[in-house]
């Protein structure tokens, strides 16, 4: 529920640019996390990662 007393105004160009940069940083961080978990899994399990029951 949004408080009707709160005044909403559009973002300035600077704020929009900052938001875009933040979004890119979040995307890059998520990508880095995917790589981190992949590398971590390989490092922890090693070659045994392929040894699984079919």
């Amino acid at each position: 529920m949004i408080d009707p007393n709160i005044q909403i105004r559009p973002l300035t160009p600077d704020e929009e640019r900052a938001r875009r940069k933040r979004s890119i940083a979040i995307a890059l961080t998520l990508g880095a996390l995917v790589i981190l978990f992949f590398v971590l899994t390989i490092a922890k399990l090693g070659p045994q990662i392929l040894e699984r029951p079919l």
């Binding site: 973002l11 300035t12 704020e15 900052a18 938001r19 933040r22 940083a25």
Partner: peptide, 11 residues
Amino acid sequence: ASAAGGEVSDF
């Protein structure tokens, strides 16, 4: 400050 539009460097 009219709004917080922090840059990545601020974080």
